[in-house]
């Protein structure tokens, strides 16, 4: 699927998807797009044969942010909008861990929107899955930063007045090293993208079009407007990726952009540590003596 990033093929699969599942039954409504993400992610874990104890998932607040509870991995369900800072701390604190951040469009692009550019410019090795349903589901249907202008909701009875964000264009302009879009209606494709993202060394943002069946059911709409990226799209071409992200007729699915060569933050930290060498408290006190 992506020639720039040849995937390791795991021959022996020891884990089953059920191994990654926790005892907690998801709180999501039947038909919620987030079930597909959960399935795809567990399959990606299985295909990559990741050990459960080496996975940590951080999330904020919202329906999709309940995600970590449904997985039998390490998880932290934190504050609204703060999945990325939590994930950053986990990754830097224990770099050998596979770290994910998950959440919704309100969590990620509204209250937590200020964290994305900084995660991108640091290139911390985090896979960030944004389940974008263009609505606030948990609080029962207020407009979100990706709601189309004019939709009528309980908090916008006369229609929303704001234009929606373009999350992919935004993330591309932040120069994130991996930018992709998936759709909950296409689990197999999503699994492939998530596997590529998990293997990508650096910050990866995946926008998943994940409809809310209760407050803003967009399944039919997305089936009509989504389509694969052009066959000849080169994921190392950021300008081309931006142009595709701005396409108003088709919502393309797949890996828009990837730069696998970029240095990762935790490696740079290691370099600084190696450069400074060892020091003892006693040596510091020596310098302060008078």
């Amino acid at each position: 699927m992506n020639s720039a990033n040849p995937r390791k093929v795991t021959v022996v699969v020891e884990q089953t998807t059920a191994d990654y599942k926790s005892a907690v039954k998801p709180i999501w409504c039947p038909g919620c797009g987030d079930y597909a993400v959960l399935t795809a992610l567990m399959r990606a874990f299985k295909h990559l044969d990741l050990a459960k104890e080496n996975i940590a998932i951080a999330s904020g607040i919202g329906c999709s942010s309940r995600f970590p509870a449904f997985l039998n991995t390490y998880g932290i369900h934190g504050l609204h909008g703060r999945a990325l800072p939590l994930a950053t701390g986990i990754k830097l604190g224990r770099p050998e861990t596979t770290v994910l951040a998950v959440g919704g469009d309100g969590d990620g692009f509204s209250i937590g929107g200020g964290h994305i550019p900084h995660a991108a410019r640091r290139n911390v090795d985090i896979t960030y899955i944004v389940m974008d349903n263009s609505i606030y589901g948990m609080t029962k249907g207020q407009p979100s930063p990706t709601s189309p202008q004019g939709i009528v909701t309980r908090a916008a009875p006369y229609g929303t007045q704001e234009r929606p964000l373009n999350p992919l264009l935004m993330t591309l302009s932040y120069d994130a090293s991996f930018v992709a879009r998936c759709f909950s209606g296409k689990v197999k494709e999503m699994t492939d993208v998530l596997m590529a993202a998990l293997q990508h060394p650096g910050f990866a943002l995946i926008q998943v079009l994940s409809p809310c069946v209760t407050y803003y059911n967009t399944y039919k709409h997305y089936r009509q407007v989504t389509g694969p990226l052009p066959e000849d799209h080169d994921p190392s071409d950021r300008l081309a990726a931006m142009a595709l992200a701005m396409d108003t007729t088709t919502q393309h699915l797949g890996i828009f952009y990837q730069d696998p060569e970029r240095s990762v933050y935790s490696h740079r930290v290691k370099k600084v540590q190696a450069h400074t060498g060892e020091m003892t408290l006693y040596e510091i006190f020596e310098r302060l003596k008078c």
Partner: peptide, 21 residues
């Protein structure tokens, strides 16, 4: 590891993340 982050909210949450780890 020392990291200068984008705001105080990120600071405390990153520290919590590292402590969790």
């Amino acid at each position: 590891t020392l990291i200068q982050v984008e705001d105080e909210i990120a600071a405390i949450n990153s520290a919590i993340g590292a402590a969790f780890a």
